[in-house]
Structures are given as structure tokens and as C-alpha cells.
Simulated assay, not measured.
Amino acid sequence: MMMRNTIILKTPEDRKIFLEAILNPPAPNEALKKAALNYLKFKTKQPSDVHPNGNHQAAP
């Protein structure tokens, strides 16, 4: 029989590590910064840049 509740933070050390990561997150690395910029570029595309089938049109 499967347990209804799963305890993820089983030890005091697990809780300490989790809380430290939430309260003091590390600075974003270069890969995360690049991903964020790519997302913003994608998000800000004008509707006219997207073909009705969802593909991006080539630049003229």
C-alpha cells in the first residue's frame, strides 16, 4: 500500500539545506541568464511574427 503523504524533508539537515536555499538563493549563473533572455525575446515577439501554424516566419 502506498503512503498518502510523502515526507520530503526527512532530517533536520534536509530542512536546514532547504530553508537556506529559499532564504539565500544563489546568484543566477550564465546559463540561467541566457535562458531568461531567450524567454524574454520569445515572449515579446509580435503576433505578426508567428505563422498561424505556430511557426516563426523567416525575416524578410
Rank of each mutant, 00 (worst) to 15 (best):
M1F: 10
M1R: 12
M2F: 14
M2L: 14
R4A: 09
R4K: 15
R4V: 08
T6V: 14
T6G: 07
I7R: 15
I8V: 10
I8G: 03
I8A: 10
I8M: 12
K10W: 03
K10D: 01
T11D: 06
E13C: 00
D14N: 15
R15S: 03
R15P: 02
K16Q: 09
K16V: 01
L19N: 13
E20R: 12
E20W: 15
A21G: 09
I22F: 13
I22C: 11
I22D: 01
L23R: 15
L23W: 07
N24A: 02
P25K: 03
P26S: 05
A27D: 08
A27Y: 03
P28W: 06
N29L: 02
L32K: 05
K34H: 04
A35E: 10
A36H: 08
L37T: 04
L37H: 02
L37R: 11
N38S: 05
K41S: 00
F42R: 14
F42K: 14
K43R: 15
T44C: 05
T44V: 02
Q46V: 02
S48H: 08
S48W: 02
D49I: 01
V50Y: 06
H51I: 03
P52I: 09
P52M: 12
N53S: 10
G54Y: 02
G54Q: 04
G54K: 05
N55E: 14
N55Q: 15
H56E: 14
H56F: 14
Q57G: 07
